[in-house]
Every structure is written in structure tokens, then in C-alpha cells.
Design a binder for these strands. Structure first.
Length: 410
RNA sequence: GGGAGAAUUCCCGAGUGGCCAAAGGGGGCAGACUGUAAAUCUGUUGUCUGACGACUUCGGUGGUUCAAAUCCACCUUCUCCCA
């Protein structure tokens, strides 16, 4: 390890807060450190926000440190109130177990778990069977409510109400850190910046119980230049699961990112050398699109693999640039029999799920936003016939950027 | 445990018997302008219908009324004040 990872992370703009900057840097520079990051399985896929944490894990792992990916099967039963204005929906144990299994699969793409190079644990293994009274006596004694109430993470909830179950979240996460410290010698906890209070809780707990020093570090949250959380679209989050967000859409998300965010994302979400990124930072105006293409390709490759990234790129080029192949575009199928006698455009689009309703389609046509094979649909009576399919396929464009390919199926 | 109040369409939030598919804002979508960017301007934003119009919606269940998001009863959830 020639370069200290701490410096790498800092240069790339990951670090938000560190408990003891000098000590942590020194530690990372001289020994193999076991560290952990927790992920609560509250949805059935990770999203781009989690991805940043995974990238950090990967950077750390490459530098010779040992990651513990903690799946919060126990903490997800409670729900983290940090930074939220409302309570999380309660999930059943089954849902959580399922979600956790999805997380595991996705993490493997970015972190190497082979040969014990990284460990995955589930805090449900120790949290779910805790005895209430012993937990209070062993762990609860170390926390003062006064201090907890002052914690930043509860602030937003002091106005709208904080239930007792959520209030306990901090204790559980702190206990996790203690547990991992004891079992694996884990002395560093990482997380998003919203986890700061929870991390400090764990560090305090380790000091009180073990008399030992532990460390914490948080990373910048992925936000746009306007401060909004990144990875949200009108359809919801941008997921890492290809069944929830197709690689094509995933690629497009990054391809369409704001100018102001490109460089930041390249630093945070790709492993391209900083020198190369710095050069891209000098690209201006239309040329910045080149940087966006690189970003989209690299990030897609990390999450979905090289092959899918190529496909997404090729489909995008086919649509926006001419050239490339249409094959990899989002595709819907239609039976030959349905087109035989002609089918109303709206029927077709609503039927294939490209549009949510016919009303939506009418609006689109009225506003001139629907295109069939690059010809604007002028009338609401437009009927699609076999003649509209060239080589068995037809391209529907909605607005400027949303493309769908429809193919005839025998 | 006692008292007060709230629940509205994607979100915030107006509406307190008919003029309400429901103000306003945000967001979304579309058009113009562009670089598959941002900003800006315009249109649009429950479903079905070519359109007139019809139908479903205002926490839940019943009720009053020619007519209910609006009134009554019960239920559920949440907030606040007192203990």
C-alpha cells in the first residue's frame, strides 16, 4: 500500500467527518484494519446511495483492510429515525430476510468476499434474541437520555414525534459495533454522514465497556449540486437490481446527470484515476457530455458488468447518435395476431405498459410528444398496422428521451 | 388516565352542505430553447370517452339529506396540553 487509503478517500471527496483524523490516518497507513458498514434491508434492492458505501469498502479492501458488511436484519425490525421526518413502515421478519438475501448478491459485485477477504454478518443473529432486561442492564446503563436527545439525528423527529422503538435504534447500532469489536477486533465504523450520531454512540459504548478506543468516519451523502438526494427519479429510486432498474435506464440516469455533478460522481462512483478525472474537469460545454458518457459507462459496468454496460451504451448510441444497435433497447413484445387487423396506438401503449393509462397517452399526443418510428403521431386515431414494423420492430418515442422498442412475436 | 385537535388527490396544503375531480405551491409529464445538461417560458397533471358527458376519489364503517370532502355516530391512526 503505497498510498494511504485515507488520502485517497479524502482526495476523492468521500470524507465528511472523522472522529480522530490523525489517528485514523495513521492507523490505516500502518496496519490491516477491520472495519464495518451497516446496511438495513428495508427494501428489496440496494440503491445508488448504498453504492457509495460499497465503493468505499472496495477502496479500503484494495488497500489491504478487511471489510465487514453488516446486514441489519435486526435493526431493520426497528427502523432508523436518523434524518427522517416520518417513521419507517414496519417490515415483517420474512420481508427483511428476503431483502437481506438480495443485498448479499448485489454486494458481491463490488466487494470481494472470497477466502475471508471480507465478511458478511447479520445483526439479526444477535439482536433478535436479546433479553430485554439484560440488554438494559448491560448496554442501556451506558446511555444518558439527555445526551441522546441532544443528538442531531433525533432533531427533526423532536417536532413530529419519535416513538420509543425508534429511539432505541441508536443503542442497537452501538451494540453492533461493540459486538463486532469483541468478535472480530473491528475498531472502525464507517457510514453515510447521517450515521454520525449512531457511530459515536458505538464508540462511546466500546470505551465504556471495554475501555478501548474505536474510531468512526462518515462519508458525504450523494446529493446533487442543489442538495437533493441523488438517485431519485420520478419512478422512485435508482436501484442496483436490474429487474427494478434496467441497465439501460441505469446508464441513462448517469448519462443525464447535471453538469455540476459529473466530476463529483466520477470521483465517488468510479475507480478512474484522479489525474484522468481532473482532466475531464476542464472539459466545457458540449464536451462535458463525453465525461457523462464515461461516467455512465463506468458506473454501469461496476454494477451490472461490462457486457451490460456495452449493451446500454450501444442502445443509447443507436437512439441518440445514430449507429449502435437497437437490440438492447427496452423492448416490449406484441403478438402478430394483435397487429393483424391494426391496433389503436393507445391500446398498444397502454397494453404493453409503456403508458400507465390511455388518458396519459391522449395528453401526450395532444401535446405532440409521441413518435412512432420517428414520425410524430398527429391524431389520436392513429392505428398501428403491420406496415409500421420494419423487420418486425417499431420504435416508440415518448417525449424526447424515453424510447421503447416493440417487436412482433409469433 | 383526563382534555383539545387532526386525517384531502404523488407531496405540502386550501376547502366546512350544492358553483368540487376539489384553490395554491412543490414535484411529474409534454412543447419551445439546447448539449440526451441547467436555467427560462408555455401547456398539462383521477379514470373511461373523438367530444358532450359518465364514473370512482377527500382515514374506515354506518347514518342524516333531494344533495356530503363538508353534518351525525362509532372505529382506526396521529399530534398537542394536563397527569
Amino acid at each position: 500500500m503505497s498510498t494511504n487509503v485515507f488520502d485517497t478517500l479524502k482526495e476523492r471527496g468521500f470524507i465528511a467527518q472523522v472522529t480522530h483524523e490523525d489517528k485514523v490516518r495513521e492507523l490505516l497507513g500502518k496496519e490491516k484494519v477491520t472495519f464495518y458498514i451497516g446496511f438495513d434491508p428495508t427494501a428489496d434492492s440496494l440503491h445508488v446511495g448504498h453504492m457509495l458505501q460499497l465503493i468505499v469498502m472496495s477502496h479500503m479492501q484494495k488497500a489491504g483492510h478487511k471489510p465487514i458488511a453488516l446486514i441489519g436484519g435486526g435493526t431493520a425490525m426497528v427502523g432508523d429515525p436518523s434524518g427522517r421526518t416520518d417513521m419507517r413502515k414496519m417490515l415483517t421478519r420474512e420481508e427483511i430476510a428476503y431483502n437481506g438475501s438480495r443485498f448479499r448478491e448485489q454486494m458481491k459485485r463490488l466487494v470481494d468476499f472470497s477466502d475471508g477477504k471480507a465478511i458478511m454478518v447479520d445483526n439479526g443473529d444477535w439482536l433478535l434474541e436479546l433479553n430485554y432486561v439484560s440488554f438494559l442492564r448491560d448496554i442501556g446503563v451506558h446511555f444518558t437520555v439527555n445526551r441522546m436527545l441532544a443528538a442531531e439525528c433525533f432533531k427533526s423527529r423532536m417536532e413530529k414525534g419519535l416513538s420509543f422503538i425508534e429511539f432505541n435504534y441508536m443503542l442497537m447500532q452501538s451494540y453492533d459495533f461493540l459486538k463486532l469489536y469483541k468478535d472480530y477486533g473491528c475498531k472502525l465504523e464507517l457510514g453515510g454522514d447521517d450515521q454520525w450520531s449512531n457511530i459515536l454512540g458505538g464508540i462511546d459504548l466500546i470505551r465504556r465497556v471495554e475501555g478501548a478506543e474505536a474510531y468512526g468516519m462518515t462519508f458525504t451523502l450523494l446529493t446533487t449540486s442543489e442538495g437533493k438526494k441523488m438517485g431519485k427519479t420520478e419512478k422512485g429510486a435508482v436501484w442496483l437490481d436490474p429487474n427494478k432498474t434496467t441497465p439501460y435506464d441505469f446508464y441513462q440516469y448517469w448519462r443525464n446527470i447535471d453538469d455540476a455533478d459529473v466530476i463529483k460522481c466520477l470521483k465517488l462512483l468510479t475507480f478512474l484515476p484522479l489525474s484522468q478525472i481532473e482532466e475531464m474537469a476542464t472539459w466545457k460545454d458540449a464536451r462535458i457530455n463525453e465525461a457523462k458518457k464515461i461516467l455512465a459507462y463506468e458506473v454501469t459496468k461496476l454494477v451490472h458488468g461490462e457486457e451490460e454496460a456495452e449493451k446500454a451504451k450501444s442502445a443509447s448510441e443507436a437512439l441518440f447518435g445514430g449507429g449502435g444497435s437497437t437490440e438492447n433497447m427496452p423492448t416490449a413484445k406484441i403478438k402478430a395476431s394483435e397487429v393483424e387487423n391494426g391496433i389503436h396506438v393507445l391500446e398498444l401503449l397502454a397494453g404493453t405498459g409503456i403508458l400507465p393509462s390511455k388518458s396519459e397517452g391522449k395528453r401526450l399526443i395532444h401535446q405532440g410528444g409521441l413518435t412512432v418510428n420517428n414520425e410524430k403521431v398527429e391524431s389520436i386515431d392513429r392505428v398501428i398496422t403491420k406496415a409500421d414494423f420494419k423487420d418486425g420492430e417499431m420504435i416508440i418515442r415518448r417525449g424526447k428521451k424515453s424510447y421503447h422498442r416493440i417487436v412482433i412475436e409469433e
